[in-house]
Amino acid sequence: MTTNVRTIKWEFAAKFIRSKSAVTGLIVVVVLVFMAIMAPYISPFPSDSMDFSSMMSPPGVNGHLMGTDQYGRDILTRILYGSRISLMVGIVAVGIGAGFGILLGVIAGYFGGILDALIMRVVDAMLSFPYILLAIAMMAMLGPGLFNAMLAIGIVMTPNFARIVRGNVLSVKEEEFIVASKILGASNSRIIASHILPNILHIIIVYGSLNFAGAIISEATLSFLGIGIQPPTPSWGSMLRDAQSYLQVDPYMSIFPGTAILISSLGFNLLGDGLRDILDPRLNI
């Protein structure tokens, strides 16, 4: 049994290394995590120090590698600190979305009946709202802030997770080994914990990674609209909000934070895409 598991692990590692998208994605994610953890140590300037001698300077002036913004704050430093916000929002929002989504999806798929009908109607209703618009409306009501943003993005992710989990629980449920353990008298909670969940785990990982990318863009969108992370906290979206007014005077203010968002979400998308191809190429998400 142990050798079996080991071969599967090796096989996975071998496939992973051969997948260009998975490796590229993983590299981006690792760099991003490194940036977020090390921000205070590798930033060239203190987090919100203002350099009044060089405001809105182009890259390279006075040691500002990516230039400065309208208050003379170092853009590279703000991008490094901004990665913390993006990662935190991604982790918490995907955690909320996956957590509630798994709970609802398993209940609906495993127990079926009236509970299933009820949950799926609510899921359908939530999916009738375009994803980002629902998050925007929730933030408009809740008011801005990091916690509210994570909550709103997590909640709008939930129905998608629920639907995907439900669909896969429905097909796993019919497998013979589950029918067998039912006959052997295993309780529902035992079947769910030791048979159902491990068999849908790969789907949750793939979908989680793809949604992580979505969460990064959503946070940036909310902050760009001024209803997400509030200044002076550096977030890539709010940096772009500032940059918008200086598009002609200082293009670098908008080029760098936007590129940071693009590369990070591309990284998670590549990782998710690569993992899907490795784990289950037939997966249609």
Partner: peptide, 13 residues
Amino acid sequence: LVGVSTPIFWFGL
């Protein structure tokens, strides 16, 4: 994939 990963407001800018 790049298209899906680009924030449209930034692309607009």
